[in-house]
């Protein structure tokens, strides 16, 4: 009788099958979030640096 080490995951378990797919998805989502932040930074840093307050009255 073969006994499995409880610390070694079963290669057929769904957790291991999904891991590569999940890893790709997480990387994609994180990359997309960083892209959105980059786009916002491009906007933020393309605004002129000097603040402008005009006293009309």
């Amino acid at each position: 009788m073969v006994t499995m080490n409880p610390l070694t995951p079963d290669p057929k378990s769904p957790r291991l099958v999904l891991r590569p797919v999940l890893s790709v998805c997480v990387s994609l989502i994180l990359g997309a979030l960083v892209g959105i932040i980059l786009h916002q930074l491009v906007y933020r840093f393309s605004l002129p640096a000097q603040p402008f307050v005009y006293a009309a009255f």
Binding site: L33, G35, I36
Partner: peptide, 21 residues
Amino acid sequence: CGWMRPGPFFAGLIFSLLLCS
């Protein structure tokens, strides 16, 4: 680092930049 894949990460980054544009 175990979860991150450089290829998909940069693909996501470029895709979202293009989508934002």
